[in-house]
Design a protein around this nucleic acid. Structure first.
Lengths: 214, 214
DNA sequence: CTGGATCCCTCACGATACTG
DNA sequence: CAGTATCGTGAGGGATCCAG
């Protein structure tokens, strides 16, 4: 049941043996955002067969990357899967991969979906700490049916799913969101052509494209 | 002939579609060190079937990650494969993955080999710029039959295969090399028990374990 | 309802042999 | 040297079914 080995005594090869199989890193990506139930993972990764999800979770658990935790009956029972501290250390790698992939992310293909977790990952990986300085900003972002938030503070970003209380800026976006973050269009153009809608001070949108940039 | 899609409009998922298939990242890892011929890649990745190598190179070429370059007849003819500038930007991701994998890299399994490229990658990914300061040091490292060098200068490292002229320190190591870099043994212990041999000033070995650390 | 297990089919991977 | 050809196996994909 163990994944195939690469036969090299090398940290990189070992890492790929653990998280290099199909779907494994996608599961880690989603779990980096928050712990999840089996069915949450299925929902976030709609194309993964259930047997493959089962198999990957077992392998990741065996490798010490993921752990199961029982949920109290009061909260619905069952189990959630979460990253171990060791698994959570994959964040740098996941962010680096996501940043590279975002560079040539064109427009969505017809059958592609957008999940809250992927948006969270995208905000995380495109965040530029060097542009943050002492900025404190609270963003709520709507992309299609997805709502996520990003709180920038002390040179770091905290992202999560759902709405936010007292946001400095609410951004309503569609496909133009990527173009905005890639600087293919300016905030002014985006607002004038109404491909992006906001509630709040437009200055925060200007700051946004400095903070998050593909 | 295209790899399977993940069906998500997400930079991370796109990246995995390009370099997420088995062997693809390993090829990138080796090409990050230097351009290579088909047979060089086979030698560095002994377990890859030739048809899979052919297939991966074509996919990576199609994705703009790898390019073929003809070699002049005077240099042996044929073609070499090298990363495009876009492909070379994978270095951050590869280093992040390698660093994570090195954390729990135990002792070598019986059938595992060590290649020059994997050592180069390891030195790259374990390098700590914050420990370099104004250090200028030239290391030649022998691990088993493999010889590589690392030149630290201006807070950066340059690694490559082969011996070095006028090295400050020559390190002769076996399996203890990993233990040394992981700080499981001290340089003094390593020298006293002769699991590591050096030619040069031992101070450079002390500096080495600060510069390169798992 | 969650959290899987089972079946079947296909195709990518792997091993080996062979060629321009 | 730089691949192609062929073929067997097993992992991935998709649907369905089942236990708590």
């Amino acid at each position: 049941m163990r994944p195939r080995a690469y036969g090299q005594y090398c940290g990189f090869a070992r890492a790929l043996e653990v998280v290099g199989e199909r779907w494994a890193m996608m599961i880690v990506r989603d779990l980096l955002v928050s712990p999840k139930r089996f069915s949450d993972l299925q929902q976030g990764l709609p194309r993964i067969p259930s047997n493959v999800l089962t198999s990957r979770l077992k392998q990741l658990e065996g490798a010490g990357v993921v752990q199961r935790r029982a949920v109290s009956r009061a909260q619905g029972g069952g189990v959630v899967y979460e990253l171990t501290p060791y698994g959570a250390e994959l964040d740098d790698a996941v962010i680096a991969i996501g940043r590279w992939g975002a560079k040539r992310l064109g427009d969505p293909r017809p059958d592609e979906i957008i999940t809250p977790d992927s948006i969270c990952m995208a905000l995380h990986s495109t965040f530029r700490p060097e542009s943050a300085g002492r900025t404190h900003a609270r963003y709520e972002v709507h992309v299609g049916p997805v709502t996520v938030y990003a709180i920038v503070r002390d040179g770091a970003v905290n992202v999560g799913k759902g709405p936010l209380e007292n946001p400095d800026l609410v951004i309503e976006a569609g496909p133009a969101f990527r173009a905005l973050m890639a600087r293919e269009i300016t905030p002014e153009q985006a607002l004038k052509t109404h491909v992006i809608g906001i509630q709040g001070d437009p200055k925060y949108l200007t700051k946004f494209v400095q903070l998050f940039r593909i």
